[in-house]
């Protein structure tokens, strides 16, 4: 089995909001501490686990400049067999259609049976790339997988549908799956793993390497500015000492009839 896993680096949200900076009227993302998108971690674990269990080969791909080698190396250290860095299609590196186009090139070149992506990226929150990729490849797509098995012939995918419901489905290869949190518990990156892959060269693949022609007639959405949402737009933020705040909140709850029922 061949499993391709698609990775994105995102700002480290664990380190506070320092990476979001108000510059004039807009908020800019200024970050030099990039980490693997949390959902992609589940995707890597799923890929490595499937290969450990059934044999075959796994590959991690990410699109971007040399900085993305960090997340690729992380995937290698976790046990992915190989990694490709894909050269971005153009300057508008964040456009989902362009990203999917590059990934399609990688998929058609490497020919995986399964592509796993994170369900969405924690920065954009879009969740578009995996589905667009599937649409372009004309492969089936299942989003928000919470379980993923191979029965020897088909994939058994458990995934979230609506209202706390999940469905179990059987789908043949090739297909695209997006990983929801809870799909697994990603393994730690071990020191031995980091060491093992430290000297590995990560090949860069450009459009020609992937036999890709540039995306034709694609109209992009125009990226305007970011801003902070109005804080506490609806909430009344209580002031005073904790004790005073508590008295006030009890009062509000009383007014709402919380204690009369």
């Amino acid at each position: 089995m061949k499993v391709m896993v698609c990775l994105k680096q995102v700002p480290d949200a664990g380190e506070g909001e320092a990476f979001l900076q108000q510059v004039g009227e807009e908020v800019q993302v200024a970050c030099d501490d990039w980490v693997l998108n949390e959902w992609d971690g589940f995707a890597v674990e799923a890929a490595v686990h499937l290969i450990e269990e059934h044999g075959g080969e796994s590959m991690a791909v990410s699109i971007g400049d040399e900085a993305v080698e960090g997340v690729l190396r992380r995937a290698l250290a976790m046990g992915v067999d190989q990694a490709w860095r894909l050269q971005p299609d153009s300057n508008s590196a964040d456009d989902s259609m362009r990203l999917a186009h590059s990934l399609m090139g990688a998929a058609l070149t490497w020919k995986p049976d399964l592509i796993i992506c994170g369900a969405m990226a924690s920065d954009s929150g879009n969740g578009l790339v995996p589905g667009i990729l599937a649409g372009k490849l004309q492969w089936p797509f299942v989003a928000l997988a919470t379980g993923l098995k191979w029965d020897g012939k088909s994939f058994l995918v458990r995934h979230e549908i609506h209202q706390g419901m999940e469905s179990l489905e059987k789908i043949g290869a090739p297909l695209v799956v997006s990983a929801q949190s809870g799909l697994n518990q990603p393994r730690y990156v071990s020191i031995r793993g980091i060491r093992r892959v430290a000297k590995r060269e990560i090949p860069m693949k450009n459009m020609a390497d992937l036999s890709l022609s540039p995306l034709q007639n694609h109209v992009e959405l125009v990226d305007l500015k970011r801003r902070f949402p109005p804080s506490g737009a609806h909430a009344e933020i209580l002031q005073g000492s904790p004790q005073e705040q508590i008295s006030q909140v009890i009062q509000r709850m009383r007014e709402q009839g919380v204690f009369t029922s």
């Binding site: 700002p11 949200a13 909001e17 979001l20 908020v27 924690s122 920065d123 954009s124 929150g125 959405l221 125009v222 990226d223 305007l224 500015k225 970011r226 801003r227 902070f228 949402p229």
Partner: peptide
């Protein structure tokens, strides 16, 4: 919304 609601991003 982006970054789990921390920022709002506009597009044309």
């Amino acid at each position: 919304a982006e970054f789990e609601g921390k920022v709002i991003h506009s597009f044309r």
